[in-house]
Each structure stands twice: as C-alpha cells, then as structure tokens.
Amino acid sequence: MKILVTGFDPFGGESLNPAWEAVKKIPDTIGGAEIKKVMIPTVFGKSAEVTEEAIKDFQPDYVLNIGQAGGRFELTPERVAINVDDARIPDNDENQPIDVAIQEDGEAAYFTQLPVKAMVTEMKKAGIPASVSNSAGTFVCNHIMYQIQYMIDKKYPEIKAGFMHVPFIPSQTVDKPGKPAMNLDDISAGITKAIEAIVAFDGKADLKAIGGTTH
C-alpha cells in the first residue's frame, strides 16, 4: 500500500506551518504502507496541481492532506468538503476568491473515504486529543480536500482520500493569548496513529462510534 501525505507551507504571516513540520517527522513506512511526503502551496488551484503531480508520480492508494487550523484544540479528520471558495484572507499568491464554486461541474459536497472515526479512536487511545470535524472551512484546506475528491470522482476512482486539520504549536501562540496549541511531536504522533487506522481499515467500513456534534 502507498499513501501520499501532504502538508501546507506557512501562510497568514506565520513563519512555519505545523502541518508540514509534523508531516516531515512521520515515519517513511507506517503499518507496512509506504509513505510519500510532499509540501504543497497554500494557494487556490496550485495546491491541487502540485498534489496531482505527486499522485501521477507516486500512484498512491490513499491521499491524506494535512492543514493548520489555528484555534482548534484537537487533531480533526474532516468528514466533508464543500464546493465553495470563500477566502477570509488572501492565499500565498494574493488570491482571495469570494463565493466561487471550486468546480462548476462538481458535486455540492464530497464525503471522505477515510475511516475518520477509527482515526479519531486510535489517536485518542494514544493520548492525542482528536475529534471528527464536519467543516473544513472555506479556505485552501477545504479547497484541496474538495479538489482531490473531484479528481477521484472524475479521474482516479481507485484512490481514497481525506483531510485532517492540526492545531498551532506553542511557538505560534506566543503572540496569541488564549489560543490552544499542541506539541509538534504529539501532532506527528497523531498523524501516524491516524495513518495506522487508515491501513488497518483498508477495505473495511469505518467504526460505528459516536462522533457527532450538536452545533
């Protein structure tokens, strides 16, 4: 089995992105699966182009995109991506689409094929705070999750894919009082455990576990 794991470059004035910093630290083999790590730009459109080139080169069975969600306390596998770009801030190429469809002929939303509840369960067993998220936002994180699902829908039906957000690391919160943070080693360990769950649940249905929210 081969799994492509991507992490974004820094954005929004940050000097680093814990997504990529954590991805760099995960093992090259997890649960017997070969891991390829790629940094992608925090740029609408271009992020999907770079990821697709990696897909063509590596021909993975799974794609797991990782992104930063400053303000979240936990690692949060995403359940769904929606067909809209609505950027609160510009991306790294100064693009700021507002209420724009990602793909005119795409579905309104795509659900991940990853076992998100099993991923959360394994991370929690390892002592890593984790929960299922039902919104990937409307910035480049949702954009790349949607774009990969669109590619699966149109071109790569054999691939399964999904997205996971990770919190700030402590050095990023020095000037952000009250914002939660997580140690980089714990984030990396959480990603590793999530991938172990992906491997273990290959060809199986996700866990039937409580993971919903009331709001």
Rank of each mutant, 00 (worst) to 15 (best):
N95R: 10
K2H: 01
P170K: 11
V84P: 05
P90C: 07
M123P: 11
L207R: 04
E21L: 08
P90R: 11
F163A: 13
E34I: 14
Y110D: 05
D105W: 04
R79V: 04
S135I: 03
T214C: 03
D85V: 05
D93H: 06
S135H: 12
F163M: 15
M123E: 00
V132A: 03
D153L: 08
V5W: 00
G70A: 13
V174I: 15
F139K: 04
F163Q: 14
D99M: 12
E14T: 06
I159V: 15
D206N: 01
N83T: 07
N65P: 04
M1L: 11
V63Q: 07
E158I: 04
V199P: 11
K36G: 12
F168L: 11
W20G: 00
P180N: 13
L64D: 05
C141N: 06
G71A: 07
G106A: 09
L75W: 00
P60M: 02
I98P: 01
P129F: 05
S135Q: 12
T112C: 06
G70T: 05
N83H: 06
S47Y: 00
G12E: 04
A197Q: 06
K56R: 02
P167C: 12
T112M: 06
E158L: 08
D91H: 05
A118H: 00
L184H: 10
I187N: 06
P115I: 02
K208Q: 09
A181M: 04
H143M: 07
I195V: 15
Q147D: 14
A136C: 09
G67M: 03
D9P: 01
K124I: 07
E78M: 01
I3M: 00
S171G: 03
F58T: 10
F163L: 14
A209D: 02
G190F: 02
T29H: 11
D175W: 05
P41S: 09
I159G: 03
A181L: 05
A205R: 12
A54P: 01
A108N: 11
V116E: 00
H215M: 10
K24D: 03
N17T: 07
I159S: 07
D28M: 13
V84C: 13
I148W: 09
H215R: 13
G137F: 01
D153Q: 14
N17D: 06
G203Y: 08
I66G: 05
M1Y: 03
N17S: 11
E158D: 14
R72A: 07
P27I: 14
G211M: 01
D93V: 12
A200Q: 13
V100L: 11
Q103L: 05
P10K: 02
I144P: 03
V174E: 15
T76Q: 03
L114R: 04
K36Y: 12
A109Q: 10
S133A: 14
K36E: 14
V23L: 08
D175H: 15
A109K: 10
Q96H: 06
F44A: 13
H215K: 14
Y62A: 12
Q59T: 09
I102W: 05
I195Y: 09
I198L: 10
Q149W: 09
E34K: 15
R79C: 02
K37S: 14
F201M: 12
Q68C: 03
F11C: 01
A48S: 00
L16G: 09
P41K: 09
P97K: 09
V23G: 11
A33Y: 09
S131E: 12
I128K: 02
E158M: 08
D185L: 07
K37M: 15
